[in-house]
C-alpha cells in the first residue's frame, strides 16, 4: 500500500560507501566498543529494526572474531514509543522488542543505520526504560548525517556525512535488502 524504500541508486545519486567500506566501518566500531568497555560481557547490542538489528548482529560478529566473546543482542522497536503518531500520513509498523532481563548493571548500546534528528534514538531510550534501568546507554550508528533536533550524540560512528536536510541517505544491506551493501545520497 505504501512505497517501499528504494534499494537501488539512481543516476543522480552520490555513492557514499560500498560493501568494503561498510565492512571496515563496522569492524572499527567493534574495536572501539571493545576499547571503551572493559567489561564486555555486560554489553548488550540492541538494534533498531530492520537495518539496525542487522548492523548489531554484524558488530557482534566482529567482536567475536576479534575478542572471542559472544555479545548479547537485542531488538528495540521504537514505533510504539514515537511522539509523532497521528501526525504522519502513515503509521509506523511495530515489531516485538527483545532485551535481556534484568537490564540492571548492563551497558546497552543502541544500534541504528542512520542518525538524523535523534527522535528515533529518544524513542529507543524511552522503550529501554520500560524494560529496566541499564547501568549506561551508548549509541552506535553507521552514518551520522547531522541535523539533530534533540540533545543526542553518537558514541560510535561509522561515517560522519554532512548533508542538506532535504537530501536522503539510503542504506542497503545484503541481509535486509537482498543486494550487496551500499550507502548512497539522494539529492532529490
Amino acid at each position: 500500500m505504501s512505497k517501499e524504500k528504494k534499494t537501488q541508486a539512481a543516476s543522480g545519486d552520490v555513492p557514499i560507501m560500498d560493501a568494503e567500506a561498510v565492512r571496515r566501518a563496522l569492524r572499527r566500531i567493534a574495536h572501539e566498543i571493545i576499547e571503551r568497555n572493559p567489561d564486555l560481557r555486560s554489553v548488550v547490542l540492541a538494534g533498531i529494526p530492520l537495518r539496525g538489528s542487522e548492523i548489531a548482529r554484524r558488530i557482534a560478529e566482529f567482536i567475536r572474531e576479534i575478542d572471542k566473546i559472544d555479545i548479547e543482542i537485542g531488538v528495540i522497536d521504537v514505533a510504539m514509543h514515537r511522539d509523532d503518531i497521528g501526525t504522519r500520513p502513515e503509521l509506523p509498523v511495530v515489531h516485538a522488542s527483545t532485551l535481556p532481563t534484568p537490564l540492571e548493571g548492563r551497558t546497552l548500546i543502541i544500534v541504528d543505520d542512520v542518525l538524523f534528528t535523534g527522535r528515533t534514538v529518544r524513542a529507543a531510550m524511552d522503550a529501554i526504560s520500560s524494560f529496566g534501568r541499564p547501568a549506561r546507554v551508548q549509541l552506535a550508528a553507521l552514518i551520522d548525517r547531522g541535523h539533530r533536533e534533540l540533545p543526542i550524540r553518537a558514541d560510535y560512528v561509522g561515517k560522519n556525512l554532512p548533508t542538506a536536510a532535504h537530501e536522503k541517505i539510503r542504506v542497503r544491506l545484503a541481509q535486509t535488502d537482498g543486494q550487496s551493501d551500499a550507502v548512497w545520497l539522494e539529492k532529490e
Binding site: 514505533a79 510504539m80 514515537r82 511522539d83 511495530v94 515489531h95 516485538a96 522503550a127 526504560s129 524494560f131
Partner: peptide, 18 residues
Amino acid sequence: TADAFKQVGTREIKKVPA
C-alpha cells in the same frame, strides 16, 4: 502487530506512549 504488543505485556513497565 499484536505480536509486538504481546511482548509489551512481558516488560517491567507494561505501558507504551503510542
